[in-house]
Design a protein around this nucleic acid. Structure first.
Length: 510
RNA sequence: GGCGGCGUAGCUCAGCGGUAGAGCAGGGGAAUCAUAAUCCCUUGGUCGGUGGUUCAAAUCCGCCCGCCGCUACCA
């Protein structure tokens, strides 16, 4: 069976999960579910990034030790994933022992290959950004203190540090990008990475001595590993590294890392360089998605407009939220989240277009066909046209999802939904009931089959709702994958009493 | 400063060399099976500006204007 390994980033635990985390995880989840539906053996990984000075400080401010602090926040992220219907196969935490072992093993391989050396680093360091800045980048305030371009306070730090010989990898990385043109997408992000690498690479500081909350460097416990080296390693930890006999090691290299655009460089430059330096295959693809604004404004704690995705689920339901996030904006672009836009999608597309189509079809069958699935009968051109559209969906979506074009995938499904609404109006089975009940039955069967195709391919996007729809369509549990669409369902099966899948959302008065 | 992207109907966007498209919103009509849902027709754009290439340019090239991303440097 074909294997497919995909990951979300591991989320940094210095804050609570918000809509951005939910978005990344939901998008990855749709792909994971799609690949399973398409017959792949999937390993879908998410988790939390728990080391680093910011976490150490946040824990200190909360008055608890870092491990307890991260236990709490990690539990919150795990709960968020569950609340979003995320079907991850594993949840990795960088504070786990398996991860420490993997990081140590990777470090030792890099050291053995001469890719790491001890030097020292000094400069202006911003704890908040986990980054050093050049003197010229700083903004001097009247009181003499300096701030990073991000506004974070900086302090002069001089410390010994291990370095990764990133500078040795410029040409090899460029050759790698050349040979793997799809490695970074979308194209705009690829251009940025190419431009960055062409500009020359400095060696990368990969250890710190200024704090303790991290994985100790082998044979030099005064140092802890740089959080990004630590964090990126999670993707091979979960595959069993360094045990290449592990059950999941055959999943490596990962088919896809989904990342936010702010961490493209780490994944597209540092990560493949480190892996190649250690003699490990780099991942196959990196895809960078965009960011959400909220009601037209940047999401920020100070504006107080950070959205808890669980509150949205409570108000609108999980599947409408999942649908909206992937339908509203091309993956890779930035987008704006607004209540009004969500309600428009929910009412217009889910309730009116699809939900109502299923409801009118199923209630006609319940009332006029004794609730039994009709015979296929003799089909005319209009029947075949609709079924050709719904029958093509699996192949069409496979191509769209290969490109992570979720919004195009959903638009393609909705073209068929609209065609089905036009079909039912033109065929008017409620009129045929009086004049030609045999033809009416054929029409209703066509609609039933078209809805089956639609609901089947929509399962990854809206698992619960589509499970209910397939229940109502009488599709057995074992016949809901893409391959099963090749077989017609037998006539005469008794269908359950239909009930609405997507109720219209009505804004509370006042 | 360098590299890159974007600017098309009221809104969100597709089209990227051959007589301007979709969804939503607006207007008119039909139907009444259905979650007052649906269907049909329709108003609406000098495709940011300007110059050029071409038989033909949203579509290619130059310049300008306005946004945005990555990156570098001076003080």
């Amino acid at each position: 069976m074909k294997k497919f390994y995909l990951t979300t980033p591991i989320y940094y635990v210095n804050g609570a999960p918000h809509i951005g985390h939910a978005y990344t995880s939901i998008a990855a989840d749709v792909l994971a579910r799609w690949q399973r539906l398409d017959g792949c053996e999937v390993f879908f990984l998410t988790g939390t990034d728990e080391h680093g000075q910011k976490v150490e400080k946040a824990a200190a401010e909360a008055g608890i030790d870092p491990q307890r602090f991260t236990d709490q926040v990690a539990a919150d992220f795990r709960a968020m994933a569950a609340a979003m219907g995320v079907s991850n196969d594993d949840f990795i935490r960088t504070t786990e022992e398996r991860h420490r072992r993997a990081c140590v093993a990777l470090w030792e391989r890099l050291a053995a290959n001469g890719a790491i050396y001890l030097g020292h680093y000094e400069g202006w360091y911003a704890v908040r950004d986990e980054a050093f800045y050049g003197e010229d980048e700083l903004v001097k305030k009247p009181d003499g203190t300096r701030l990073a371009p991000t506004g974070a306070p900086v302090e002069w730090v001089r410390e010994p540090s291990y370095f990764f010989r990133l500078s040795a990898w410029q040409e090899k990385l460029l050759a790698f990008y050349e040979q793997n043109p799809d490695f970074i997408a979308p194209a705009a992000r690829r251009n940025e990475v190419l431009s960055f690498v062409r500009g020359g690479l400095d060696d990368l500081s990969v250890s710190r001595t200024s704090f303790r909350w991290g994985i100790p460097v082998p044979n030099d416990p005064a140092h802890v590993m740089y959080v990004w080296l630590d964090a990126l390693t999670n993707y091979i930890t979960a595959a069993g590294f360094p045990d290449e006999a592990a059950a999941r090691w055959p999943f490596w290299p990962a088919d896809l890392h989904i990342v936010g655009k702010e961490i493209v460089r780490f994944h597209a430059v540092y990560w493949p360089a480190m892996l190649m330096a250690a003699g490990i295959a780099p991942p196959k693809r990196i895809y960078s998605h965009g960011w959400w604004t909220v009601e037209g404004e940047k999401m920020s704690k100070s504006l107080g407009n950070v959205i808890d995705p669980r509150a949205l689920v409570a108000e609108f339901g999980l599947d409408p939220l999942r649908y909206f996030l992937l339908r509203e904006v091309p993956f890779g672009n930035d987008g704006d989240f607004s209540r009004r836009a969500l309600i428009t999608r929910l009412n217009g597309e889910l309730a009116n277009d699809l939900g109502n189509l299923a409801q009118r079809t199923l209630s006609l069958i319940a009332r006029n066909c004794d609730g039994l699935r009709p015979e296929i009968g003799v089909r005319i051109a209009a029947d075949q046209a609709l079924l050709a559209a719904s029958g093509a969906l699996a192949d069409v979506l496979r191509e769209r999802l290969q490109r992570l074009a979720f919004h195009e995938a959903l638009e393609e499904v909705w073209k068929t939904v609209r065609a089905a609404n036009a079909y039912i109006d033109h065929q008017a089975p409620w009129a045929l009931r009086k004049t030609d009940s045999a033809r009416m039955a054929v029409v209703l069967r066509v609609l039933l089959d078209a809805l089956r195709g639609i609901a089947t391919v929509l399962q990854p996007f809206m698992p619960d709702s589509m499970a209910r729809m397939l229940d109502q369509l009488g599709v057995p549990e074992g016949e809901r994958n893409l391959a099963a669409l090749a077989e017609d369902l037998p006539a005469g099966a008794s269908l359950p009493v239909p009930s609405g899948i997507f109720p219209r959302f009505v804004e509370a008065a006042g």
